[in-house]
Design a protein around this nucleic acid. Sequence first.
DNA 1: ACCGAAATAT
DNA 2: AATATTTCGG
Length: 225
Amino acid sequence: MLSPRVVRPQPHDGTASAGSSSSRRHMVDRVSEWELGLPSAAELTPVSQALIPPALAAAFGIGPADALSSPVDTGFLHDSPTSHLTSRFDEYDEEDEEEGEGETDDAAAGARRGGGGGKKARMVWTPELHHRFVEAVEHLGEKGAVPKAIVRLMNVDGLTRENVASHLQKYRLYLKRSSPGAAAPSPPPPPFFPRFDVQRPHQDSANRSGYCAYPYVSYQKLGCD
DNA sequence: ACCGAAATAT
DNA sequence: AATATTTCGG
């Protein structure tokens, strides 16, 4: 029992910014920022009001929020591949938002390529990111859950409308599949993320860190708008 | 211009 | 094969 607080190995990138500056962090302020991104209170989903408050605030209790204009710097982190199954759009369990660790956006490194040409790195929808996406969708409601609004609410730097649109498409398909199916064809109602862990015929014993799969990315597109 | 699904690429 | 990106049409 007990929630596995997973100890993340942390992406020790080469640039060890000695002494990460985790100084003062406001937790509540984060919520304010969220509201800022809201669409002029056009239509606050009437159904979910309790979706934002405490849990989220707690989750949002991170980030520098200082000089950076980046609102939610999703440094994208993923925890252990074996122990986190947070993808229930039904309810939240525990949300692990990424830490403001890094400014080290290796992302830029991955996405940005010498100069001019650029190749776009494949977007990596990590569970946390996806969770955020889902929450945005839920809050907007089926009606207003359009890419643009979602992107706005997520406020993830680098995330484009296309990215969300694509993911949204899949997300909707998944929902549709599960809804009418009444009889629950599949025993375990898969949240959404089909392929993430599963695939572990190995009996892990020690921490042989076998996990180097890492993101190639984070995305960073300065200059939002 | 934006959203939605199809087609295409990795 | 699965996922994301890009293209096409409304």
